[in-house]
Simulated scan of single mutants.
Amino acid sequence: MFSMKPSTPLPLSIAFAALSTLAACGGSSHSSPVAVDPQPPAQPAPTPPTQPAPPPPVDPAPTPGSPELTLEPGYTSISSTTSFSQPNWPAWSHSGTASVDGVGCAQSETYHTHALLTVYRNGVRLALPDSIGRGSGCNYEMHTHDGSGVLHIETDVPRTFTLGQFLSLWGQGIGGGAVLGMPGPARYYLISNERIAPVTTDPAAIPLAAQTEIVVILGTPPAALPRYDWAGSGL
């Protein structure tokens, strides 16, 4: 019988195989840590752009029904208005001597003063009829001579008449959607001492004061109103 010596080749081969197996699986049970990219720091939210301040409010344009009126820089003679005023109404017709709305026949000219009534239609000055309140045996205490719009007030004692009284004598009205026989509405202004003021009360109640102009405007107003020379016009 052959006796066999113990030897180590087999265990070494087993150990080598085990090492090969470990190398194939990654080498050891403790694998190298995997590098992880660090998270970038959180960025702050962008600041919204500053909104520009709103523009200041703009004053509204003047209302077409209430335009600003101005006077011409130079003076105009009132008597010259007949040359650029357009005829519009028929001649005044009246008979009798009865009082009309408190206006009677003149007894004397102890008190004599003047006011002015001006009517514009779409920028054109209209001529009042001649001799409203004159004729037929009676010169009324308030009347016209020509188309200038001058109202002559001639009484025995100082009196103050109104626009409504003159219109009654003339036979015209300013109510009911019509103004002096023309489609309304109208705007009324008072010019005294070269100052223009809109009339916000009943226009029929406007007093006919000395050297005062009442302006009635229908439609588009004129670019500027004449600045009248009362003294130079003999009024």
Rank of each mutant, 00 (worst) to 15 (best):
residue 7 S to H: 13
residue 68 E to V: 13
residue 186 A to H: 07
residue 31 S to T: 11
residue 124 V to Q: 14
residue 219 G to C: 10
residue 5 K to H: 10
residue 92 W to K: 07
residue 5 K to W: 07
residue 8 T to S: 13
residue 196 I to E: 05
residue 28 S to G: 15
residue 133 G to Y: 03
residue 6 P to T: 14
residue 95 S to V: 12
residue 187 R to H: 02
residue 122 N to F: 00
residue 168 S to V: 02
residue 13 S to W: 04
residue 145 H to F: 02
residue 38 P to T: 12
residue 26 G to A: 10
residue 49 P to I: 04
residue 77 S to D: 13
residue 43 Q to W: 03
residue 123 G to W: 01
residue 40 P to S: 11
residue 49 P to A: 15
residue 9 P to V: 13
residue 63 T to N: 14
residue 85 S to T: 09
residue 227 R to F: 01
residue 75 Y to M: 10
residue 89 W to S: 08
residue 34 V to H: 05
residue 207 P to R: 10
residue 197 A to H: 03
residue 38 P to W: 07
residue 120 Y to T: 05
residue 46 P to L: 08
residue 136 S to R: 12
residue 69 L to I: 03
residue 155 T to K: 10
residue 98 A to L: 10
residue 188 Y to F: 15
residue 99 S to F: 00
residue 118 T to P: 00
residue 115 A to S: 15
residue 163 L to P: 04
residue 99 S to Y: 00
residue 136 S to K: 12
residue 64 P to Q: 09
residue 71 L to V: 09
residue 53 A to E: 13
residue 156 D to G: 12
residue 224 A to W: 02
residue 88 N to E: 14
residue 205 A to S: 15
residue 203 P to Y: 02
residue 158 P to G: 09
residue 145 H to T: 08
residue 157 V to P: 00
residue 201 T to M: 01
residue 53 A to Y: 01
residue 27 G to Y: 07
residue 117 L to M: 13
residue 78 I to D: 02
residue 43 Q to V: 15
residue 180 L to A: 04
residue 28 S to M: 03
residue 158 P to T: 06
residue 142 M to R: 08
residue 1 M to L: 15
residue 70 T to C: 02
residue 190 L to N: 06
residue 122 N to P: 03
residue 155 T to Q: 09
residue 97 T to G: 12
residue 106 A to E: 14
residue 110 T to L: 04
residue 115 A to N: 09
residue 199 V to C: 03
residue 17 A to F: 09
residue 136 S to V: 04
residue 26 G to I: 05
residue 202 D to R: 05
residue 165 Q to R: 11
residue 86 Q to F: 03
residue 176 G to H: 08
residue 111 Y to C: 04
residue 103 V to T: 06
residue 155 T to L: 08
residue 176 G to P: 04
residue 121 R to D: 07
residue 139 N to H: 12
residue 62 P to M: 10
residue 121 R to N: 11
residue 71 L to I: 08
residue 26 G to M: 09
residue 127 A to V: 05
residue 26 G to C: 08
residue 204 A to E: 11
residue 187 R to T: 12
residue 34 V to C: 09
residue 91 A to E: 15
residue 81 T to F: 00
residue 181 G to N: 09
residue 173 G to E: 13
residue 56 P to C: 02
residue 146 D to Y: 01
residue 128 L to I: 04
residue 135 G to P: 05
residue 144 T to M: 08
residue 212 T to W: 00
residue 102 G to F: 08
residue 140 Y to H: 14
residue 58 V to G: 01
residue 58 V to W: 00
residue 11 P to N: 07
residue 29 S to V: 15
residue 18 A to F: 11
residue 134 R to F: 07
residue 112 H to M: 05
residue 122 N to W: 00
residue 104 G to L: 01
residue 88 N to D: 09
residue 126 L to K: 06
residue 125 R to T: 06
residue 100 V to K: 10
residue 151 L to T: 06
residue 11 P to W: 08
residue 114 H to E: 14
residue 150 V to H: 02
residue 209 A to R: 14
residue 173 G to D: 12
residue 19 L to G: 15
residue 174 I to L: 14
residue 229 D to K: 02
residue 111 Y to E: 06
residue 196 I to T: 08
residue 29 S to F: 14
